[in-house]
């Protein structure tokens, strides 16, 4: 009778051990599965380098020292000629402007805009380079400013 009880206990112990092993293996498989998503590399700025080759400016804003727009109307962006044309209000302080670029997904701008920009030399327009998400396409955009003329 005692032998039979011992045997039963051993069988239960073996079954429990088997169950734990299977559970552990299953969790390991699931965990490995989640780790398999593709990792994109990052560039020197800590930005993802993706597979996108698109490279253009989608919108442009220009703010004055009071962080209000100085545009008289929407900027004209020519993605073929790679130009941005903006007309600003009469009397705009061209030395202290904050340009804002909107770019296609994953693209970045060079040089970076870290503060106000001096646009006062209208004869020498400012130039920025747009770099695509895959960092293989580079396009130079020239920003032309004109001041609303006094009649």
């Amino acid at each position: 009778m005692e032998d039979k009880l011992m045997k039963n206990k051993n069988l239960k112990y073996i079954a429990m051990k088997k169950f734990l092993k299977i559970s552990f293996a299953l969790i390991l498989v699931l965990f490995t599965g989640t780790q398999c998503s593709k990792d994109f590399p990052v560039d020197g700025d800590g930005l993802l380098i993706t597979e996108r080759a698109e490279c253009y400016v989608s919108n442009f804003e220009l703010l004055g020292s009071d962080f209000q727009t100085v545009r008289t109307k929407n900027a004209v962006i020519d993605t073929t000629a790679q130009t941005v044309n903006v007309e600003v209000f009469y009397g705009t302080d061209l030395k202290n402007l904050y340009p804002q670029f909107s770019l296609v997904t994953d693209a970045k701008l060079d040089p970076k805009i870290i503060g106000k920009v001096d646009f006062s030399d209208l004869a020498t327009p400012k130039l920025w380079t747009v770099i695509s998400g895959n960092r293989k396409v580079k396009k130079d955009y020239t920003v032309y400013i004109t001041v609303q003329p006094k009649p």
Binding site: F89, Y90, G91, K150, P151
Partner: peptide, 8 residues
């Protein structure tokens, strides 16, 4: 100044 054509 209220000048037509510009924002003064």
């Amino acid at each position: 100044r209220n000048i037509t054509g510009i924002t003064f």
